[in-house]
């Protein structure tokens, strides 16, 4: 049984449908990239997978021992966080709250887990620094470390490289690839179709046309062909 199985899923707000007819599965160890134009409903899909909102139709079944709150999440950055006075340590540790249950304070085990994940993301030296003073790439590492505190199984990343420069972007992609190699399942929203084709194992394309399949299937499909070429043209004419 797969981690996540979506059947005939439709998404939207207040019963106004944005996308419909989504069918896909995510298995342990997969690296799924969700691509599609701005406003096509990628973030909405992710929020639905996280049970932050109800689907308009269809259903999502989690299986293979995955519990609802064992999903790590890296959100698109919000306004509140930008001037939030919080140290890196505090933020990473807050990723452990799902493990606490009703216990009000973090225990030693959770504190060492936070430390471990800061080390893994290479931000241990920044532990006492203030989040708002960090660079964009460092901030993303902090949020990634927090997400890792919440899960050992699956990460949902909403445009993790938005606003990062090319070098830092490449580092971020490598970091995520390493996590995937260590056995963590990845679902990532990305605008960058080239990176998606390079790193992912599966593609979910949402928009006017919906596609789900492996990288090779996507490359051969009409939707994929169209989208990949379209992006290349876009890049050439832009730059």
């Amino acid at each position: 049984m797969a981690f996540i199985t979506a059947t005939d899923l439709s998404l939207g707000y207040d019963s106004q449908v944005i996308v419909s007819g989504l069918n896909f599965t995510v298995n342990r160890g997969d690296y799924l990239c969700i691509v599609g134009e701005n406003g096509s409903g990628k973030t909405t899909l992710m929020k639905t997978l996280l049970h932050l909102k109800e689907p308009v139709g269809g259903q999502i079944v989690t299986g293979d021992g995955l519990k609802k709150n064992e999903i790590g999440y890296l959100p698109q950055q919000t306004l509140v966080q930008r001037d939030f006075p919080a140290s890196v340590k505090e933020i990473v540790l807050s990723g452990c709250q799902g493990r606490c249950g009703m216990r009000p304070f973090y225990n030693r085990e959770e504190k060492s887990l936070a430390r471990e994940n800061m080390e893994r993301m290479g931000i241990l030296a920044l532990a006492d620094r203030c989040y708002r003073d960090l660079s964009g790439g460092q901030q993303q590492r902090v949020l990634l470390a927090r997400a890792l505190c919440a899960t050992r199984k699956i990460l949902l990343l909403d445009e993790p490289v938005a606003g990062l420069d090319p070098v830092v972007t490449a580092q971020m992609y490598d970091l995520i690839k390493d996590l995937n190699r260590d056995g963590i399942t990845i679902i990532m929203i990305s605008h960058d179709i080239e990176a998606a084709m390079k790193y992912a194992s599966h593609i979910l394309h949402i928009g006017d046309r919906v596609f789900f399949g492996t990288i090779d299937e996507y490359r051969k499909s009409e939707t994929g062909h169209f989208f990949i070429e379209g992006q290349k043209d876009g890049v050439e004419s832009n730059g």
Binding site: L50, L52, V80, S94, C100, A150
Partner: peptide
């Protein structure tokens, strides 16, 4: 005091807390 950690988490990132089951 009792809810200090939760209040921090919910203030910093409501969606994340909710996804983690808070």
């Amino acid at each position: 005091l009792f809810f200090y950690n939760r209040i921090f988490a919910v203030t910093f990132d409501e969606d994340f807390s909710r996804a983690a089951g808070t």
